[in-house]
Each structure stands twice: as C-alpha cells, then as structure tokens.
Design a protein around this nucleic acid. Structure first.
Lengths: 166, 166
DNA sequence: TATTGTTATACTCTATAACTATA
DNA sequence: TATAGTTATAGAGTATAACAATA
C-alpha cells in the first residue's frame, strides 16, 4: 500500500553527500558528540581535557589567557576551573605581582588525570578512524591541518614545523 | 612587566593540535558556523538548503520521512516547512490515500531558490578549502567519505558507486 | 578609568511531552 | 490502539551584562 515515492528514502540527497562542507560538518559534529558522551561517562568532559592539556604543556597560567587560547568565555572558564579544583586536578593562587590575577597550575593528580583522559581520547579517535589505515590517517590529518592553519594561526607550530604527526 | 610564563600564549597545546579528532571537531564547527552565518545573511539557513536539496532530488515527500533522512525532529521540521511554505518554495498537500499525511513538494520558485543556495554553499566551500588544490580537495573528500560511510550507511550511494567527486 | 575574575541574567537551541485528526 | 503532523513545555548550553577587587 505504500507508493514508491512516499516512505523512507534509502539515503541522503546526493547533493549533500557530495559536499565536503556538509561531510565535514557532520563528521565534526559526530566525533564531538562521541567524545562528549564518553568523557562524560568517565566523569569528565572535553573542556576539562582541553584545559588540562593546555596546562600540561605549561604554556600559560592566567585565566584570561587560558580562555583566549581555548576560545572559551571567561565566565564559562570559571565554572570549569571550579570543577577541576574540586577534584584536586588544578590549583588557583593569586599572583602576588598583580593581585587581580589567578595563577592556575596542574597538580600531580591533575597530571595523572590528563594521562587517563589522553588515553581515552586516543581510543575514541582510533575507533572513529577505524576504516582508514595509518597512511590514510596521516594524509587526512595533514589535509585538515593545512585548512586549519589557513583559518586560525594558533594551529601553527612555532618551532617544530617538521615534527612527526602522531 | 609581564613575566614570560604569564600573558597570552602563541598557540594551542600541541597535544590538541596533533589530534585529528580535535581538528575535525574544530573545522566542522567552523565551517558550519560560516554556512549558518552566510545563509542567514541571505535570509535562509542550512536547514532550508538541506530540505530543498532533498526535495530537489524527488526522493521523499512525507514529513516523517524527510525528518528521518535529515536527522531532524519531526516537530522541528514543522517550523522549517512553515517558513519554506510562506516563501512559496514548497507546497503541503494532504495525501488522499492517508489523510494524516502531508505530501511535500518543491515549487518552481523553490527550485530557483535551491539553485541560489547551491551556488552560495559552493562559494563558502571554495573559500574554506582555499589552501588546498583540486587534487588535495578530492583526496580530503574521499577520506571523509570513507569515514562517514563507516558510521552512517545513508552516506552510501546505492547505484553510482564510482561516480565523479565534484 | 581599565582590567581580572566572578556572578547573575537572558537567550537560543534542542529535546520531550502532550494534543488533534485520522487510521 | 497506533500513527502523522502539530503545538506547548522544559532543559541544556551559550552569550551578555552587571559586579567587586585591584591596578
């Protein structure tokens, strides 16, 4: 009783499937969704991971700087740092030279947590890129990085321009 | 007076930059943001474009089917179709064989609008992928499609498996 | 007056749940 | 009773604005 033109179509419109933009948007959304889901199940979040990763490289410490690099709102960062501090992963201390500022630093436990989250994210990544072999993954990464650098200078590595990928 | 360890760091943590997942998430978000922004400035939206593109290929007509393919909520689709109908881009008619259903179809004006939006999206795409030459774009597209197909069967083309990319 | 971190508020999406009319 | 479309409601997430302490 179902006419062929009605009913659930088999696939997405070819016009959208053939668009790199549409594909990129969908995949970006999906990988983000997965990461959020799995990190939340582990009692953490992508935001936590980003902040810990940043502090792990010792790049910056003032809250405003952290917010700028990660493109977060300062007021949003406050809540994140509260949570990380409650778990004992970071410390906030007043900067003696400018008492308005808070110096944020990673604790030993924070470093451990960073290691756990890093492993988890690597696994998520590995699952997501499952259909690609190592060579294809590197090719994909290289192409994405070219595009990212073109739009956002912060993706450029200042010194080690020719370092290995993974 | 600014100590070197404070202040705004030059770039993102290497750990995040070297992660395909992070990169994919960022780029997907950014391209989506641009598309939303530019289509909105043109009085339309990515949702409108998706619906028109789907109808343009004549694949389906019942609202529930449209919602399923585009992964939209049925209640969300109602508002979108309202807008498209107000602009005269689509028509809703009751299906005589099942008066609960609405048969949605593209008008001549809708087809014109689809053409305009298609051109706009192509331009956005072209700008976004500017740093890549044609060969790199095709390589990127191929890799993204492999991943997309692995996670969502609707990205598979039923017949023309070996068709051209762009 | 300007800036840092903070708190409070408003707004936009989206997801869920109820409602109607048909089957 | 179940389903298609619709409407109404609630929640999460995010952006904006006000605030207190310090420069």
């Amino acid at each position: 009783m179902i006419p062929p033109s009605i009913g659930s179509p088999a696939c997405l419109p070819q016009e959208l499937v053939s668009s790199p933009v549409f594909l990129l948007g969908r995949l970006g959304f999906e990988i983000k969704r997965r990461a959020i889901e799995e990190l939340e199940a582990a009692g953490s979040s992508m935001y936590h991971y980003s902040v810990l990763a940043l502090l792990g490289e010792g790049a910056c410490s003032a809250q405003a700087a952290i917010a700028d690099v990660l493109k977060l709102d300062r007021s949003q960062l406050v809540g994140l740092l509260d949570e990380l501090e409650q778990h004992g992963f970071i410390e906030r201390r007043r900067d003696p030279s400018d008492r308005r500022r808070h110096t944020v630093s990673l604790t030993a436990e924070g470093r451990d947590q960073l290691g756990r989250l890093r492993a988890l994210v690597r696994r998520i990544e590995d699952d997501f890129l499952a259909p690609l072999d190592q060579q294809s993954r590197e090719a994909l990464y290289g192409l994405l990085l070219q595009v990212a650098r073109h739009h956002d200078a912060r993706f450029s590595r200042p010194a080690e321009q020719a370092a290995a990928v993974g």
